[in-house]
Amino acid sequence: HKWENEITKDDIDLICFSIDFYLSLITINEDRKEEKELTAYVKVDKRKTLIKMKELTFEELLYQSYHCLERKDIQKMRNENVKLDLTNMKDDIIESDKDVKREFKKNKPSFKITWTPLQPIINEKTKTIKNALVMTIAISEYNDKTKWPNLPNVKEDLINFKQLFEKELNYEFECNKSPHMKKTDVQSFLAELVVNHRLHKNTNNMMD
């Protein structure tokens, strides 16, 4: 062909530039297409936020959804003891990769954040404590100090126990007054405790 002999170096540079430009346009279009496919909206109460997914997985959707939360949403989760769940706009639960891929086949995929109360874990071994009474015998001073040294930290332990059981848990709390007790003192303390709290009526069911 005659035109083959008429191509100059400038023509070759122009052709190469045109090819590179065309390829870059194709790449940009593909990226935009992929970006469009992985774009969705997440609705939190009345707010609607655009998210861009890196992959079509439930884990990625959950990750992006948490980024849509504001400070007040985090406070709501703490104060009301609720957790985040995801649904589509028809309130169908989203909980798997399959669910996510199904929604992204739609023209405009959208999701909603719902708040679900956290339920306490209850098993068959769980028991309810009523009318709790905590009794502590704290002996920290001994006659024979060479064999049994005194325990000065026990007084501080008693203060902590009293704070926990009596102040925080609202249990009845009883402890010995003297840090030095003999066997007969312990027996008297227990007998007085039984009488004062009428524990002799409670021997068959200590949990009532």
Rank of each mutant, 00 (worst) to 15 (best):
D85N: 12
K76F: 09
M89C: 09
M77I: 11
D73S: 08
D85M: 10
I94A: 05
D85C: 12
N88D: 15
D91G: 08
Q75D: 14
T87G: 06
R78D: 08
N81I: 11
D92F: 14
L84C: 08
E80H: 12
I94S: 03
L84Q: 08
V100F: 03
R78E: 10
D92K: 14
N79E: 12
E80C: 09
D97P: 06
L86Y: 04
D97K: 04
K90M: 07
D91T: 03
Q75V: 08
K76I: 10
D91L: 12
K76L: 15
L86G: 02
D73A: 05
M77H: 05
K101F: 04
D99Q: 02
M89Q: 11
K98F: 08
T87Y: 06
R102G: 07
R102M: 10
L84I: 15
D99N: 15
D91I: 01
D97V: 05
V100M: 01
N79L: 12
I94R: 06
K76N: 10
K83M: 13
D99P: 00
D85T: 12
N81H: 13
N81M: 12
V100Q: 01
N88W: 02
K90N: 13
N88H: 06
D92L: 13
L86C: 09
N81Y: 08
R102A: 15
L84P: 05
K83G: 12
I74G: 02
D73F: 03
R102H: 11
M77C: 13
D91F: 11
T87M: 04
M77D: 02
I94P: 01
D85P: 00
K101A: 13
E95M: 11
K76P: 00
M77A: 14
V82D: 00
V82E: 08
D97E: 04
L84S: 03
T87H: 06
R102Q: 12
K101Q: 15
S96Y: 07
R78C: 05
I74Y: 14
K76E: 10
I74Q: 09
K90H: 10
V82A: 05
R78S: 09
Q75E: 15
V82Q: 10
K98D: 14
L84K: 07
D99F: 01
R78P: 00
L84A: 06
E95L: 10
E80P: 01
S96V: 06
N81E: 14
I74R: 09
E95F: 07
V100K: 00
S96C: 11
I74S: 06
K83T: 14
D92Y: 13
L86N: 00
V100I: 02
S96F: 07
K76T: 13
S96D: 01
I74L: 14
N79C: 08
E80V: 09
K76S: 07
I94C: 06
I93Y: 08
K83A: 12
D99I: 02
D85V: 12
K98Q: 13
K98T: 14
K83P: 00
S96M: 06
V82R: 02
E95P: 01
V82N: 05
N79V: 10
V100E: 03
D97I: 02
I94E: 05
D91Y: 11
E95I: 09
R78N: 09
M77K: 11
N88G: 04
K83D: 09
R78I: 10
